[in-house]
Design a protein around this nucleic acid. Structure first.
Lengths: 208, 208
DNA sequence: GTCTATATTGTGATAGAC
DNA sequence: GTCTATCACAATATAGAC
């Protein structure tokens, strides 16, 4: 219960509270309670709410982005990348219900934070990484198209469409649960089943 | 500058401020300034911040949902619905950059609000509307599949995949702008071009 | 209906003992 | 490192004049 251990407990607690309430809606007192320590300790370790919020945001973004980037810029085949991204994102998001809504909310309400944090998360200049991913996949798509195995599609579309399909339903979950008339477990089951169909759906869209 | 007019100016101002900052991050003072009136007037018309926030949320959801629902449960053909949804959502979201992030953030941070508000927005019992949309489209999908024009796909997948593709990129815009290395105008141009390709992409995924 | 002034509470942050 | 006590101010909300 001391030192590094406490700092970690606080960050865990902050993660839980900030993701559920959002940065602006989160209260330091609630984080302290959740961590089982006093409010003053939060400031001892993180100085201010803003810095704690940044640590949480960095961590949250780090749960999603680096592994996805790794898959996308690897040398694996297109089909394998599609399956890998779907499997990865769906499994992470099934276990973290607040993650996508939190991230998208923070992105729109604090867009200025993204730039600085992005780099510390993926450990690379963002422009460079984005370019690397795009040129890698663009080459693959082009080769597939020339071989007649896929129809032409801009890399930007490939990337946006893939992550849209994988992530969005989790972000809109509260609305979807009402419209599809399912509870938590029903939704989770739905997502588990959809995960199996999604790669086929996406790859089918790429057929010539 | 009186009566109904003032109430509307306040709601407009609140809409602008709340969507950009989020409900918890928004300040009544900023809303008052934006509306060009005094803080006390906000309470005169809306009683509390919470009620003002609800009015804004209702209005924001109303910009997106009812028209989409109308298209989905109409008697139009599947292909026409796909084109209609893409056209509608993309055009609305291009003009309202904060709308999707705000909605998704509020959904995750205040899921309890959805139930009550949903009904007043679409003017119908939510379970009923959802069921109506699903059974209508399920019938259409089944007919298309039997005629050999489309492969089989659960209604839930059809609905989730379609709205995911249409909405998500706008919600993730700040991140995508960095990764794709484009500014505001570049992003808008990208979305404009993608809008034309999206229906083909989606319909292609439905081919047998 | 609209304003100014003020009450009241909530909340981030620090001082200082242990 | 961790706590209690407290400060300082931000933010919602209301009272009351006009």
């Amino acid at each position: 219960m001391a030192d590094r251990d406490t700092e970690e407990r606080i960050l865990d607690a902050a993660h839980a509270v900030f993701l559920q309430r959002g940065t602006a809606g989160a209260r330091m007192q609630e984080v302290a309670d959740e961590a089982g320590v006093n409010k003053a300790l939060l400031h001892y370790y993180f100085r201010s709410k803003d810095q704690l919020a940044q640590a949480v945001f960095r961590r949250a973004l780090g749960e999603l982005l680096p592994q996805a980037m790794e898959i996308l810029r690897s040398e694996a085949e297109i089909e394998s990348k599609v399956r890998g991204i779907v499997e990865l994102e769906v499994e992470i998001l099934r276990r973290n219900p607040f993650l996508p809504g939190y991230l998208l909310g923070e992105l729109t309400h604090h867009p200025e934070r993204v730039h600085e944090i992005f780099e510390s998360v993926v450990g690379m200049k963002l422009g460079r990484l984005g370019h690397e991913v795009r040129s890698t996949i663009a080459g693959q798509l082009e080769a597939e198209a020339e071989a007649g195995r896929m129809r032409e599609l801009p890399v930007e579309d490939f990337l946006m469409n893939l992550v849209s399909l994988a992530i969005f339903p989790f972000a809109a979950r509260p609305l979807l649960q009402l419209m599809l008339d399912v509870d938590e477990d029903g939704f989770d089951a739905l997502m588990g089943a959809r995960k199996e169909r999604l790669p086929e759906f996406f790859l089918n869209a790429l057929r010539p």
